[in-house]
Amino acid sequence: MPGSPMSGQVSLVNDRDQINAVQDLVVEQAEELGFPNGARFALRLAIEEAIVNAFRHGHRGLPDDTPITVEYTISPERINVAIEDRGPGFVPAAVPDPTLDENLENPGGRGLVLMRAYMSRVRHNDRGNRVEMELLMPDEL
């Protein structure tokens, strides 16, 4: 029903088709509820970065077919997406700031910066294996 919250939970392995499918699912539902192009761009980028971080860093050393879980709730006011991996977790504060001059030429470490820049709120659980992101509907469309 248009305007009603939509929610779901998806389990996926590190497969590009599965990653694209979950991004499309969330972004298309956001479009149905009226989130504008810029918000959908932000949403797709943040989900991409969070999923890639979960597989590349969170699941380092785990079997390739270890799944992650993506939970989402989309309402006309906000989008909430949580991504949880099965790894030991990490300490977000320990990740070097890639925007500092001395780190600018490091090839990695920009996923968190992008997630924080594009989402209204980003938080990790204490263990560091689950990231929860919230995107509010922009005030002006």
Binding site: F41, L45, E48, E105, G108, G111, L114
Partner: peptide, 16 residues
Amino acid sequence: DHLSSAALGTLITINT
């Protein structure tokens, strides 16, 4: 249309 941080990393390596 879309570019991830992984692509940025490759561009940095190319630049270097």
